[in-house]
Design a protein around this nucleic acid. Structure first.
Lengths: 131, 131
DNA sequence: CGGTATCCAGCCAGATACTG
DNA sequence: CAGTATCTGGCTGGATACCG
């Protein structure tokens, strides 16, 4: 390769897209937290609402529906009174969680580099930056 | 465990947070695409602009700055005229990319399950859904 | 209890004109 | 060529009232 005029077109056949897709499934402020909470075993709606600091009822519901639709959570309604609904991770979700752990590992290994990069960048772009 | 009153509180010490952090670094519509494009070797601004279908100049710049700040890209300015700027993945970014591949693998292994889950969910929640 | 419906603020992202 | 500045619309997400 001549290193200068390579094709960088990003399309559906590009590795980028599957990554983005799977990322989209668990992205957002709450999805991972919910998955983690549910990974320990079946959990009730109100437990999640109380346990996940700062989440609104609406966002919890929306995220639960999304994760259920993705096949990552199973929703079980017990027709008791008062109603009881439990959410449980699927096998697939647990597997995904394991995979995400490798990302955590990456983050840990490079946390120093990242912090340093931040510092360098911020210093170079601060109001009192050098020429 | 009695399976019912466990602590599902999600806080800073929870595994969820590092995951979310690293995910935030590469989330968004464009970051991955840029990383992929740059993974092949140094690439110029205009090459990225042309190569990444649909990205605006502004979003490209924003993403490049973000990735540079994270230490995932290195920006090199050649003081020629006209100006020439190249972006190159860091070692760390390449490593991250390898890790992301395991997510792709997960997605591939379960693409069938996910599609099925979607179908099931959508059928169950369609206007003409059963009781 | 476990949601849904509604309203609203803020941020994100697109388009585009301008600049060094 | 490689950006920055500005405007603007739309989506996301928070608060809350209501419903089965």
């Amino acid at each position: 390769m001549s290193r200068g005029h390579m094709d960088v077109t990003v399309q559906a056949d590009n590795p980028a897209c599957p990554v983005s897709e799977v990322l989209d499934r668990v992205a957002g402020k709450w999805a991972i937290g919910i998955l983690v909470a549910a990974a320990k075993g079946p959990v009730r709606f109100s437990e999640l609402e109380r346990g996940i600091e700062g989440i609104s009822r609406r966002m919890l519901t929306l995220n639960l529906r999304k994760l259920e639709r993705e096949g990552l959570l199973v929703r079980t309604v017990y027709p008791t009174v008062p109603p009881r609904v439990e959410y449980e991770c699927t096998e697939m979700a647990l597997e995904l969680y394991e995979t995400l752990l490798s990302l955590v590992d990456w983050a840990k290994r490079h946390s120093g580099d990242i912090a340093r990069a931040h510092a360098v960048y911020d210093a170079a772009h601060s109001p009192t930056a050098p020429a």
